[in-house]
């Protein structure tokens, strides 16, 4: 059962990374316009060159 001493911290760390990513996404306001962001990815406007 010694393996648990590695596995539990590892799984908590992985979960923690997910939580940190969520907090980061929240802080950078990525949940403000979910409908718009879902649609924006489909537009072809700046496919050939970056937006100036």
């Amino acid at each position: 059962m010694e393996i648990l001493t590695y596995l539990i911290p590892v799984s908590l760390l992985l979960g923690g990374i997910g939580l940190a990513a969520f907090v980061w996404a929240l802080k950078t306001r990525q949940f403000d316009d979910p409908a718009g962001d879902a649609s924006r990815i489909l537009t072809k406007d700046w496919d050939d060159r970056p937006k100036p």
Partner: peptide, 11 residues
């Protein structure tokens, strides 16, 4: 309401 609306309006 749609993806096309976004680009039409912004353009």
């Amino acid at each position: 309401h749609c993806a096309a609306c976004i680009s039409t309006v912004e353009t």
